[in-house]
Amino acid sequence: MSGAPGPILEVRDLHTQFSTLDGVVRAVDGVSFDVARGETLGIVGESGCGKSVTAMSILRLIPRETGRIASGSIKFEGEELTSLSEEEMKRLRGHRISMIFQEPMTSLNPVLTVGTQIAENVVRHLGVSWKQGRERAFEMLDLVRIADSRRRLDEYPHQLSGGMRQRVMIAMALSCDPQVLIADEPTTALDVTIQAQILDLMIELKEKTGTAIVLITHDLGVVAETTERVVVMYAGRKVEQAPVEALFEEPLHPYTRGLMRAIPRLDVEADAAGTRPRLQEIPGLVPILTQPIVGCAFAPRCSFATDRCRNERPPLVDAGAGHLVACWEVDRVRRAA
């Protein structure tokens, strides 16, 4: 797309923490990445590695009672988001950065019509009348290919299927032509055929509108099919980042390799429930985030681990061609391939 050069979104050394009875949870522990204009960036990692918290931090939707962005910087079009007022943040949300969530069954308000929920976003941010807002909602439902869209405007979420609700969420999120769409596991709760349809739709719309997408998922199959660049997260940290081909060509982090081995084959996919199994097949447990992690967070589960791994945190290094990895033993890992 056009516009100023440079990334649309820059996240630098983000630390997001929660105060709980067990202590401080370091949910995001120093994550950095850029999102280029119009690109699709994937963020992958096992459950609990901090993907959602990263997304919620960008929109500054971390619950204020328990959580906070402890440090770091988030720049959108060069503007620092962490220091914006709440009112300024509200003008951005749903307008220039929008978000869709994993649970299509519960993410729409059950007592408001689909038309109202899309139109209110447009009315709020583009300052148009309700009549124009509704017209826009109608256009958007057409765009996400919901049949009989005129009538659907006046329906309530419970009258729609899961796939249709997620289409409505997409319609809502894109209704103000945002520069960035953060999709947090948008298809995880859907069955496989619908998953593919929704992903295709998102990519098609992205190409049409130039919206950059941050696609959060634990499904490497989805990453391979839809993203251009991938960030791999583990225990609140970024452990690897690469263009999608390079990552699948030669994963450099032992954790990424573990994920790849756990990937369900796309040609045999889908269990009885119609969903791909979660990626939890790497032996061992995710570290407890209330304890400060010394050294490499993956060390307890890593077959390459050495004493240095357990005592010193591996820095992110460029292994060539924009392929970053945080691992002391990259060379050994490479040779082991």
Binding site: G94, S98, F101, E103, T106, R124, H125
Partner: peptide, 11 residues
Amino acid sequence: DYIRTANSKGL
């Protein structure tokens, strides 16, 4: 969840 959605729209 739908309140989170409403907040994510900046209402």
